Computed example of a mutant assay.
Amino acid sequence: MLSLQEYISIKLHKVDLKLTGYIKAKLEPFNIAPEQNLIMMLLWEQDGLTQSQIAAKLNKDKTNIARMASNLEQKGFITRQACPHDKRSIKLFVTEKGEDLGKKVIPVAEQFNELVSGGFTKKELEELDRLLTKISYNLD
């Protein structure tokens, strides 16, 4: 029988808690939660994604994305608009306030990534990505 410390799922959970706690504290001054920031990161990369596209990219429930988008809109970081060719689809667009947020938050995200990947070689990071992807596939 495995000890509690030998379960890979426990180790991953502990790391996830540390990652989430760290980035949550770093994002708090900007009035944005880590999951909301994931949406913003996608929009800073490609403005005008639909809520469905974001849900698929983040592997999140569409209802959850809609709720977070509403919250981001209330904060003034995005606007939501119905697609002209499909009124059921909602596109998200970054506002000027959202662009200003990006200028502050993207460097924080980059520093966080550097901290997390510190000490790893490029080959080790590629292997870690491969292994995490394998775990995800195992769960599917």
Rank of each mutant, 00 (worst) to 15 (best):
22 Y>T: 13
13 H>A: 11
20 T>H: 04
17 L>G: 09
51 Q>N: 12
19 L>G: 00
47 D>G: 08
56 A>F: 07
113 N>P: 05
4 L>Y: 09
33 A>T: 10
115 L>I: 06
25 A>Q: 13
10 I>V: 13
112 F>M: 05
38 L>S: 11
47 D>Q: 00
83 C>D: 15
95 T>Q: 02
102 G>H: 01
65 I>H: 04
115 L>P: 00
71 N>R: 15
70 S>H: 15
54 I>D: 06
2 L>V: 13
49 L>E: 08
15 V>I: 14
96 E>H: 11
54 I>K: 05
106 I>E: 02
23 I>R: 00
36 Q>H: 02
72 L>C: 05
100 D>A: 12
83 C>H: 14
45 E>S: 14
46 Q>K: 15
75 K>P: 03
31 N>V: 11
20 T>N: 07
55 A>N: 07
5 Q>K: 15
27 L>R: 05
26 K>M: 00
34 P>Q: 02
48 G>D: 03
92 L>C: 12
63 T>D: 15
9 S>P: 02
41 M>W: 09
4 L>H: 09
92 L>E: 04
113 N>T: 13
13 H>D: 06
96 E>D: 12
41 M>Q: 13
50 T>N: 06
92 L>I: 10
93 F>V: 02
34 P>I: 06
92 L>T: 07
32 I>Q: 06
103 K>I: 07
86 D>I: 09
30 F>N: 09
72 L>E: 03
104 K>L: 09
64 N>I: 10
39 I>F: 01
70 S>K: 15
113 N>S: 14
50 T>A: 06
57 K>H: 07
43 L>W: 05
100 D>S: 13
72 L>Y: 03
113 N>Y: 14
74 Q>C: 11
20 T>E: 08
18 K>C: 10
35 E>T: 00
5 Q>E: 15
108 V>S: 01
114 E>P: 01
68 M>W: 13
62 K>Q: 14
72 L>F: 05
51 Q>K: 12
106 I>D: 00
6 E>W: 04
96 E>N: 11
77 F>Q: 07
11 K>A: 10
5 Q>H: 15
41 M>L: 14
41 M>A: 13
104 K>V: 01
83 C>T: 12
9 S>A: 12
77 F>H: 08
42 L>I: 07
15 V>M: 11
83 C>L: 14
99 E>P: 02
31 N>T: 06
98 G>P: 01
47 D>Y: 04
66 A>Y: 10
5 Q>P: 11
16 D>I: 12
24 K>C: 01
73 E>K: 12
105 V>I: 06
70 S>P: 09
109 A>E: 06
54 I>Y: 09
6 E>T: 03
101 L>K: 05
54 I>F: 09
33 A>I: 10
112 F>C: 03
28 E>G: 07
65 I>F: 08
115 L>D: 08
14 K>H: 08
14 K>F: 05
39 I>P: 02
5 Q>V: 15
107 P>Q: 03
93 F>G: 02
60 K>C: 00
77 F>D: 06
20 T>M: 09
81 Q>W: 03
67 R>E: 11
71 N>Q: 15
19 L>F: 00
74 Q>P: 08
70 S>T: 15
36 Q>M: 04
53 Q>A: 04
98 G>L: 05
109 A>K: 10
54 I>V: 14
37 N>W: 10
54 I>S: 05
80 R>K: 15
58 L>N: 06
23 I>C: 05
19 L>K: 02
94 V>S: 00
38 L>E: 13
112 F>R: 05
43 L>S: 04
77 F>E: 03
86 D>Y: 10
74 Q>Y: 13
11 K>Y: 06
23 I>K: 02
